[in-house]
Structures are given as C-alpha cells and as structure tokens.
Design a protein around this nucleic acid. Sequence first.
DNA 1: TCGCTAATCTATCACGCGATAGATTAGCGC
DNA 2: GCGCTAATCTATCGCGTGATAGATTAGCGA
Lengths: 352, 352
Amino acid sequence: MITMQAVARRAGVSRAAVSHVLNGRAQAVGLRPDTCRRIRQALAESGYRRNETARAMVKGRTRIIAFLTPSLREYYCSEALDGVLAEANRRNLFVKVFTWRGSDRPAEFARILDRCFQAQPLGIIARGLQADEMSLLHAAVRAENMPVAALDSSATACPGSTRVRADDAAGIKLAWHHLWALGHRRIVHLTGPAELEYVRLRGAAFQACMRRAHLSAEENAIGYGQEKDFPALVQNWFGQAPARRPTAAICASDIIAALLVRLLRGMGLRVPDDVAVTGFGDLSISRYCDPPLTTIYQPFQLMGARVLRQVLISGNRPAPEKRRDIILPVKLLKRASTAAVRVNRRKARNLN
Amino acid sequence: MITMQAVARRAGVSRAAVSHVLNGRAQAVGLRPDTCRRIRQALAESGYRRNETARAMVKGRTRIIAFLTPSLREYYCSEALDGVLAEANRRNLFVKVFTWRGSDRPAEFARILDRCFQAQPLGIIARGLQADEMSLLHAAVRAENMPVAALDSSATACPGSTRVRADDAAGIKLAWHHLWALGHRRIVHLTGPAELEYVRLRGAAFQACMRRAHLSAEENAIGYGQEKDFPALVQNWFGQAPARRPTAAICASDIIAALLVRLLRGMGLRVPDDVAVTGFGDLSISRYCDPPLTTIYQPFQLMGARVLRQVLISGNRPAPEKRRDIILPVKLLKRASTAAVRVNRRKARNLN
DNA sequence: TCGCTAATCTATCACGCGATAGATTAGCGC
DNA sequence: GCGCTAATCTATCGCGTGATAGATTAGCGA
C-alpha cells in the first residue's frame, strides 16, 4: 500500500507537504511552485490513492450512506437504489446496502441496525420497513441524531423524518382521465390489500374521480385484495352482460394488470377491444406483456436521487418535528392495453 | 458518540480493559470476573457500538466488499446483489455498491475504480464490464493484489480471476429435452446477438441437442439478433404451412420469449396449442406473462453468495494463473407456455 | 555581525481502537 | 521485613490522514 509517507520520501519532502498539496492548501501555506510540481509528480508516479478509512478517522465522519431494505427483489427497490447510487457518485459518497429478510424480521433488523451504526454512516435511507422496525429505527436515529429519510408509499409514519414518494393520486387521476377521454364510463379499480397506504391513496383518488364525474359507486367498484382473490372478483365484474359489464379497469400495479389481462383472456374477453386496462409503475413487465400495458411511470431514479439529497440536507439542519412528504410527479405512458370504448351495435344504429 | 474511553470511565477501569472484554481477551489477560461484569454492564448501559472505521484503521484492512456493476437495472443484477448481501451479512461484511453507466464509460469506470480502491475493499465483485473496462480492472487488481471475481456470462476473459455463472448449456438441454419429450421435432432457437458469450454457449448447446437427435439444421434454425430483427425472423419461420412450421421455440431469455408470444399471437397462432415456447432466466415477467412461461431457473441468489465466498477464498491464496469458471446448476420450471405437440388431423385419422 | 520579517517547510497532535509489554498490587514462604 | 511469583490491570505504540502551530532558512537593512 502506498501511503502519503512513501510519496513524501519519493518527493524528498515531509508528509505534511504532500497533505497540503492534496488538500489544496499548497498556496495557503506557501509551498514553492517547483516543490508542488515535485510532489504532484511523485503522486502521479507512485499511483497514490487517498485512504478513505484514515480520512474518515481524522475527519470524524465517513462519506457513507446506508441504504436499508428488507430485500432488493421487491418492487421498484433496485431502480431507486440505482438513483441513489448515481447521486452518491456525483457527490463522492459511498453507499453501503443492508438487507435483512429472514424468519424473525424485527430481531434480525435490530442486528442489522447495529451493524449499520457501526459503519458510522452520514445518513440512512430506509424503505420497506414494518411498523415495529420503523419504531426501532426511529429510536436509534433520535438517540444518535442521525439523518434519515424514507422511500416508500407504504411506510408507517416516522415523525421528524422525510419521506419521498411518487404522486399516487395524480397517477390514478391520469389513468382515469385517459379512460374517460376514450369514452369509458363503467370503470372499475382493482387493487391490493387496503392495509397498505398507497393502496388507500390510489383507491381514494379513484373514488374522487368517480364522484366528480357523477358516476355511481355501483357501476364503478373497487376490488381490494390479493392475487388469490382476483379470479372471483373479475368473474363477478366481467361475467355480466356486455351492457352492464365494465369497459375499463384501473389496476393499482402492473402485476395486477398483467394478472387481469390473463383472467380476461381466459373469459374470452379481449384487451383492449372489450376491456381497457391500465397498470401502475412501469415495471419491465408492462413493456413485455401482451398487449404492452398503458401504465403510470414512476420516477424511481429521481426518487432515489432526491431521497439522498434530502438526507444530506437534514444532516445540516435540526430535525423538524413533523414528517415532511416529498411527492414527485408521475407520467402516463400510453401503450396498447387501452383503446376507445366500443359503441355497442344497437346504440350505434340509433345514433346513425 | 460513545467511545471505549467513555465506557471505561463509567466502569472505572482503563480503556484497555474494555478492549480486552470486547475482544474476548478477558480470560487470557486475567481480568477478574466481577471487573468483567462491571465492564459488560457499562457497555450495555451506555449503548456502546464499535467504530468500524477505527477498527479497520488499526487492523489494516476493512470489512468492505465492493460490488461493481454499470447499473442495477440490468437483467438479474439486483437478484445477484441480493445474494451477495445475504452472504455478507452472515460473514459480518459490508457491501459498497458502485455504478458508472454514463456517456463515456471507460473513462467514468476509471474514476469509479479509483473511488473503489480508496475505500480499501477486502475484495471486488464485478459484472457487466466491457472489454476495455475489464482490462483496466485487471491491471488495477494485479497492481494491488486485490481479490476479484466476476459474475457474468458475457464477461470478457480476465486471466487469474474466478467467474461464477449459471450452466447455460444445461439449461438449453433441459428445455430441449422437455420439448422433445412432449413430442416436438421441429424446434427453433431464438436468441440474442452472437457477440455475447452466453448467447453462443446457449446456441451451441441447442445445436448439440439437434445433432444428437439426428435432426437437420434446416428444420431447426437458430435466429440470432436483436428485438427489431425478430418480427421478420418469426414471420419467416412461423408463416410457413402448418406441416412445415416449427412446433416449438427455445428462447435465450424470458424477454425474447415474451416478445415471441406476442408476435405469434399477432399471427393468429396460439401458445402453447400451436407453438410451445420456453424462456430462460425465470425473471418476474415469466410468472406474470400470459401464458406463464416455461423457463429455466437460474440460481442468482446462490451465484451471489458463491461469488462472495470465492472472493474471500482468493484473498487467502495466491492468484492462479488461469481463470476458473464456477458453473452453478439450473432448473426447468414447467409452466403454461409448453404442451404436447398437437398431432395434425390427417395423421390423427391415419393413426386411428 | 545582528536583528527582523517573510518565505518555506516540518513536527506534532488527534481520531478510536487492537495488541503487547510492562506496571502495580497481593499473597506467600522464610 | 524481604524476595519471589502470580494475579490483575494499565500505559503505550501504531494505523494513515488533516490541520495547525511552530521551526528553519533566506534575505535585507543598518
């Protein structure tokens, strides 16, 4: 390993002189230009690299950001981490990732949290925490006055910490107005378990759209549930006579949308001809599905970059009392799973 | 921040005594049991946590593993990283992730490599490197004698470093024999650009199966190419008369398989009734497609865990001259995109 | 030659910890 | 009381770096 000492010897100066050059203090302390040059040359020739560990030691703080997630396989997790990493690069920070999926999660999380604090990070970015895990984290960061920010729509509230999420309500509104503009009036909403906050947010947005359009709740149902609940729900809705059957479905995720497409095809209904379907999230599946899904793009990369900036900001300020939500805008991606409502024949004849 | 010094004061002993307890040297240096107890109590009460930075400083090496990937959004990258992280947890190691996708990749990579070495990692895990990046890495790790292992099927050769990958050939063989057992004889292989090593490996395995079954290359074509090339290829193959048309297709990835299913449906052909399709990789898309894809499961998590172990091993030994490949077994997942070949009517009548 | 200032570079402390040699006290036999 | 050993704990060095106070030399006027 090449230390500053070695470089100093090579340049025939003291270690301090090398340090001055490295830290831009050469002018300030008055090193002669040609001494500087000698030192720079020695640095280049020896291939010296700063030792980040020693720097952290003497500075009293590392340049590490901790990223906590139960697993990287969940949902949009790796996309967001990717955004965090890009921003960390720009700011010359390092990212340590911690996971803890396993049998007894809260206990395992406590261990991980310990390991995380041992690394003395500058700040913590967390996502996917359960309620009990969130309170552990909250207690720890308060005790150590550690900057923290969450990256979630399902996170339990953690007072005093910022949360970055996509605009769920706006996404559903975009999907709804897209379908409305295509002539759809009987629209249903298929979504996940109501315990999740983002599920509730999206459901509420859907209902708000309905009310504003004076459409009855009867024709425009919300189906909460999990994968196994969907077949019965879908049979119920789409097994009706064509005149009563919904012409469009807004799904709370791309995965739900893909499942719906499969179920509809099984019932002999075509997408988008008989039923228009929208997803949410712009996961890769939405691009490769048949038909490719009209969906809501969430700016995961941006969210990652933003949450990192937020951690750094809150490192420089006293923590606020209340949690702040940072809500990033979403976009509608029109693909092949939505089309104009098909006017049924009788009506069409009447109109002509 | 609570240091050992603070704990020592609280327990009324010297810092050294605390260090002895923490490092299991209490017996060896002969601390009295009740002194030990006092120290342990002080440790618990103060909520002391070891400072990983200082430990690394004095030990002369960190507990950091560097994970290098151009981006986390590629292919199976996050699954593999997940495996690395799980194994790192077990071994009490930390993982720093570095990415560098961007406009001028090799230059950006050089910067990242510098940052990586500044962190003084125990070892490096790399994937997705271009040839020029690989040679930069190779030069650096040789100079510093840094353990390194790759996680790829497309990586350019890096002499002296281990590579972990899935058994591509075995995967194709599994798919082929599955289709063969279902009665398929006219089988084609749809795959990516031939520059990629895993594409060549899978193609060669397909051809080997063909030859062993004495099937002609004419009926059993390989289509190399990219997304834009596929429609023409597929039209060529499957636009033929039913008696000449392939009854099955082995795809080199789940994404290609999903695209193929869409194209076939566009031609009025049904999967699996008219054409059986297999994917490769067991990406999430393969579960949510319609129909869910029969595919080859690759043990990404295991691969991640294994590559980490490998880095640690090569840290303890002198680097071998030649690269070693570690090839992990794959599995066939039977889902709904494959079925027995349909006997055509004339033949069926004859048989009856 | 002496004293003063400016120019140039270096000695040294500190960061928190691991490890080892050494210090201090206690106990015991004579 | 003295010397020796064992038991128990502590002082101290060193890791590589950042930062600051201080050391050394040069130059110049009288």
